[in-house]
């Protein structure tokens, strides 16, 4: 019986995460979509816990539910779209073809998922001790993966600069002589 509870939790939360994704797809109001995204993302955090990825589960909650979705909601409220600006759903040939291709890809992949991976032995040995803990992930991150970790800081810095440049952009280019304006003018011509 002790193995049954995690399995039931898996079905509950994977259904919740898929349901949240469906609501993101079908809701017209972007604010409702953002709330559905929170449901999907938090259910995924529970799935990470079931996979004994404890550190990642908390990181998922903090980064996705705490930062990314808040950013989405911030922008949605900042834009404050009216009903007309949201637009109506329209059918088009390209949308139909695209949706068909997406579903066909899922159906094409499904047999591979089903067949290629053998079912776990009756008693899955369980994760080794300390697997997925902050200590284990941190040791890998600051040891073997130190270079990618440091490159990430450059990525975040460039994203920060890009955010500032995009947010400060004026409708008409100003006649100033800062380096950023010069660069923007250079790339504009």
């Amino acid at each position: 019986m002790s193995h049954l509870l995690p399995d039931i939790l898996f079905y509950v939360f994977s259904a919740l995460s898929v349901a949240g994704a469906v609501l993101v797809l079908v809701n017209r109001n972007p604010m409702t979509c953002a709330m559905s995204l929170v449901v999907s993302v938090l259910s995924l955090a529970i799935l990470y816990l079931l996979l004994s990825a404890h550190f990642l589960a908390v990181a998922q909650m903090i980064v996705y539910a705490g930062a990314i979705v808040v950013l989405f909601i911030f922008v949605i409220m900042l834009l404050n779209l009216t009903d007309e600006e949201l637009g109506r759903f329209r059918f088009s040939l390209f949308k139909t073809i695209g949706a068909f291709v997406a579903v066909a890809t899922l159906l094409a992949v499904a047999p591979d998922i089903r067949v290629s991976i053998p079912a776990p032995a009756a008693g899955d040995a369980g994760a080794p001790a300390g697997y997925g803990s902050t200590k284990a992930v941190g040791k890998l991150l600051f040891g073997e993966f130190l270079l990618p970790f440091e490159l990430t800081s450059i990525l975040i810095l460039s994203a920060m600069v890009a955010g500032v440049v995009l947010a400060k952009r004026e409708l008409q280019p100003k006649k100033t002589h800062s380096l950023v304006d010069w660069l923007l003018g250079f790339f504009r011509t």
Binding site: A21, L106, A110, I117
Partner: peptide, 19 residues
Amino acid sequence: FFPVGQTHFLATSAFLFTL
């Protein structure tokens, strides 16, 4: 359907990706 293994997680992942 029981016990839940890698296949089940990959199936959830495939559904989420398609959505």
